[in-house]
C-alpha cells in the first residue's frame, strides 16, 4: 500500500512538472503531427491502403512519440542530481519506477487521444465505430510502451549517447507488443469483422504486459541504486 502511495506521489510530481513546463507535451504533439503529415507523402493514402495498414501507421507515430516521452522520464531528474535524492528518499525503486511509468502512460495516452481524431481527419477514417474496444487496446499498447520504455530510460539515463541507445534497446524488445497492438488497432480502427486470431494477439499483448511489468518492478531497485 505504501508503495502505491509513493508511486502515486511520484506520478503526480512528474505530471505536475510536465503540465507546468509542457516541454514534452508540446514537442511530442507537434512531432506526431509532422510524422502523420510525412506519411501522406510516402504513399497515396487511399481508403483500401489505410484499411490495410492504418493501425500500423498510427502505432509507428505513437512508438516514436513514446520514445520522446520516456526518454525525458529519468533524464529530467539529472540536473541538480535530483535522481540521487529520489533514490535516497523512502520511496522504493519499484515505486519510483511505477510512478514514472504511470506518468508516462498518462502523457502518452493523452497524446494518442489527440492524435487519433487528427489521424481520422487526415486519412478519412471513421475511427469511433468500436470506440471502447479501441481505447482498451490503445491503453494496453500504451502501457507496454510506457512500462518497458520507462525501465529502459532508467537503464540508459547515465549513458553517453542516451538518446540513441534508448530506442535501439527499446524497439526490438517492444516488437511483440507493437505487433499485437498494430494488428488489433488495424481491425478496430476500420470496423472490420474480428478475425479468428484476434484473441491470440490480445493474449500476447496482455501476457507481454504482465511479464515485463513484473520483471521491471522486480528489477527497478537493482537498476536505480548505484
Amino acid at each position: 500500500m505504501t508503495m502505491l502511495r509513493h508511486a502515486a506521489a511520484i506520478a503526480a510530481k512528474d505530471l505536475r512538472s510536465e503540465f507546468r513546463t509542457k516541454e514534452s507535451i508540446n514537442s511530442t504533439l507537434s512531432f506526431s503531427v509532422v510524422i502523420l503529415l510525412l506519411f501522406s507523402f510516402a504513399f497515396d493514402p487511399s481508403p483500401d491502403m489505410i484499411a490495410e495498414f492504418g493501425g500500423g501507421l498510427l502505432w509507428m507515430v505513437f512508438a516514436f512519440a513514446g520514445a520522446l516521452i520516456v526518454n525525458r522520464s529519468f533524464a529530467r531528474e539529472l540536473p541538480n542530481d535530483c535522481i540521487d535524492v529520489l533514490v535516497a528518499s523512502p520511496a522504493s525503486g519499484a515505486s519510483l519506477f511505477l510512478g514514472k511509468a504511470v506518468a508516462c502512460f498518462v502523457l502518452l495516452f493523452g497524446i494518442e487521444c489527440i492524435c487519433l481524431p487528427v489521424f481520422g481527419i487526415f486519412y478519412n477514417i471513421t475511427w469511433w465505430r468500436s470506440l471502447w474496444a479501441l481505447l482498451g487496446v490503445l491503453a494496453l499498447g500504451t502501457w507496454a510502451l510506457a512500462c518497458v520504455g520507462t525501465f529502459f530510460s532508467a537503464l540508459t539515463v547515465n549513458l553517453r549517447l542516451r538518446e540513441l541507445m534508448l530506442p535501439m534497446l527499446l524497439y526490438p524488445m517492444l516488437i511483440p507488443a507493437l505487433l499485437s497492438v498494430m494488428m488489433l488497432t488495424n481491425t478496430l480502427l476500420t470496423g472490420q469483422a474480428l478475425p479468428p486470431d484476434f484473441s491470440v494477439w490480445l493474449r500476447l499483448l496482455v501476457g507481454f504486459n504482465i511479464m515485463f511489468t513484473t520483471l521491471s518492478v522486480y528489477l527497478a531497485e537493482t537498476i536505480l541504486v548505484r
Binding site: 537503464l155 534497446l169 526490438p172 524488445m173 511483440p176 511479464m211 515485463f212 520483471l215 528489477l219 537493482t222 537498476i223
Partner: peptide, 9 residues
Amino acid sequence: VLSIFGSAS
C-alpha cells in the same frame, strides 16, 4: 538486467 529482459524475448 538487460540480458534477463533479452532472455524473455
